[in-house]
């Protein structure tokens, strides 16, 4: 009797001891450590990638690969920018980046006076190198170190060639441009014209609208009224494809016009799959992110001096609609 009581008591004691020590251990394990204090610079360079169109697949991809590449090079990179092409916000971010004295700015070019002022004067004063990506701004205006991205002239040429292969050497082509990204647009137009000029029987008409959807639609209609025998539409500006397709598609059965776009967005791709679009230029965001970061790092390291002023062009491919005749 006494023995069992002693055994029970010691078992109870051991159990209590066990649980107590367990909870002591749990208490010590609980909680996470504070972030380590930094005494010295952790990374070589602080880079910023600034874009106007955050949260679009194209720029997400650019940002993703850029961050990866930055991690590989042991530099830190943050993606800043504005949503939905908010210019003011974008310029503010640029200014912050410059005032923050980052080591390098990789930026989507914006063909406006403010942007040029920022890159040329402020960034230049602080000695911050700027690389434009995807959209270029002329070197003499922006003092950018280099450009990484699509060769828009080449893209224009590619579209023009595709057009000819579909249309033949005869017909009317309506080119519709937007108000933004003038420089890119000019490059594209230049490319298209280069090709189409060789075929005198091909008539090209150029129209420019502002970016608003209604304006795009109305100018597309106007053009269709003006040139009822038009064969093809080309959306030279990236932002107007959707509205253009909409306008054209409403007026006529799809298939009457050939429609081409330079836009590489999910909406455009959706239209392509539905067959309302005949072709689009696909760019290489991964390449853009990777190359731009590498160039920036090697420039900062002093390895590649000077950079190619004309820019480093990335691959483009023509994606054609399959179910279109």
């Amino acid at each position: 009797m006494r023995k069992t009581a002693v055994v029970m008591c010691s078992i109870a004691g051991l159990i209590l001891c066990f649980f107590t020590s367990l909870s002591v251990g749990r208490m010590y394990e609980a909680g996470s450590a504070m972030p380590a204090e930094l005494q010295e610079e952790q990374v070589k360079y602080r880079l910023v990638l600034v874009t106007q169109e955050l949260n679009t697949p194209f720029w997400d991809k650019v940002g993703e690969t850029a961050v990866e590449e930055a991690a590989k090079n042991n530099v830190s990179l943050q993606v800043w920018g504005s949503y939905g092409s908010n210019e003011d916000d974008f310029l503010k971010k640029m200014e912050i980046a410059i005032a923050s004295k980052v080591d390098g700015i990789i930026v989507q070019g914006l063909d406006t006076a403010e942007f040029k002022e920022l890159t040329k004067i402020q960034a230049g004063r602080s000695g911050i190198p700027v690389i434009t990506v995807a959209s270029d701004v002329p070197m003499k205006d922006s003092l950018r170190r280099t450009y990484v991205g699509t060769d828009h002239t080449a893209a224009g040429r590619m579209v023009a060639k595709e057009l000819i292969s579909k249309l033949g050497t005869k017909g009317t082509v309506i080119l519709i441009g937007g108000s933004r990204q003038q420089y890119d647009q000019d490059q594209r137009l230049k490319g298209i014209q280069e090709v189409l000029q060789q075929y005198p029987e091909l008539v090209t008409v150029y129209a420019e609208t502002s970016d608003e959807r209604e304006k795009v639609i109305s100018s597309a209609r106007e053009m269709m009224n003006k040139y009822p025998n038009a064969d093809a539409f080309v959306a030279v500006n990236t932002h107007i494809t959707d509205a253009l397709v909409n306008a054209v598609g409403k007026r006529y059965q799809s298939g009457k016009y050939l429609i081409y776009s330079f836009d590489d967005s999910p909406e455009t791709r959706f239209l392509l799959e539905r067959g309302e679009l005949d072709g689009m230029i696909k760019q290489s965001p991964e390449e853009i992110g990777q190359i731009s970061v590498n160039l920036m790092v090697s420039w900062l390291d002093g390895k590649t001096v000077p950079l190619d002023m004309n820019g480093y062009y990335t691959d483009i491919t023509m994606i054609k609609a399959k179910n279109r005749p």
Binding site: G13, L16, C17, T20, S23, M27, G31, S32, A33
Partner: peptide, 25 residues
């Protein structure tokens, strides 16, 4: 970290309970 502190205080509460039981025993 805050969560950790909360967790810790929770664990401490439990420890206190066990400790109380043990000491009483």
């Amino acid at each position: 970290f805050y969560q950790g502190i909360m967790e810790k205080s929770e664990a401490l509460k439990r420890l206190g309970l066990w400790l109380l039981l043990l000491i009483t025993f």
